[in-house]
């Protein structure tokens, strides 16, 4: 049985530990790809936020970028007005 969208959102609101997408999918008995789609729905609705490496490196300075690692993509509750998918590459001024 596919979990409801609310059940997915509830995880973010009530659970106390971080999980990988695969682990959460296993916990909710759902295919990871479908779970990602449901999370994507909440991201579009502005309830969740996607933060991650997607935007890092897009400034064109990746070759000399001092960051030792790119960040994996994460999803979290959007509790303020930080734009989704925000990057922080210091050289891009973002």
């Amino acid at each position: 049985m596919t979990p409801t969208l609310r059940e997915v959102l509830n995880y973010f609101e009530k659970q106390s530990r971080a999980l990988s997408l695969t682990d959460l999918a296993r916990e909710l008995h759902i295919e990871p790809a479908l779970l990602q789609e449901m999370i994507g729905y909440w991201v579009r609705k502005g309830k969740l936020r996607q933060v991650g490496a997607d935007s890092c490196g897009s400034c064109g300075c990746s070759a000399g970028c001092p960051l030792p690692t790119t960040l994996p993509r994460r999803y979290e509750l959007a509790t303020d007005n930080l734009p989704t998918g925000v990057g922080f590459c210091p050289r891009s001024g973002s």
Partner: peptide, 27 residues
């Protein structure tokens, strides 16, 4: 306490020589 996050773990893969060399050279 902060809310938890869900992380999309990328699959493991063999590092490529060109990518590793590019990273080292830049730094």
């Amino acid at each position: 306490p902060p809310h938890p996050f869900v992380m999309e773990l990328p699959p493991y893969r063999l590092p490529t020589l060109s990518s590793v060399l590019r990273t080292i050279r830049g730094r």
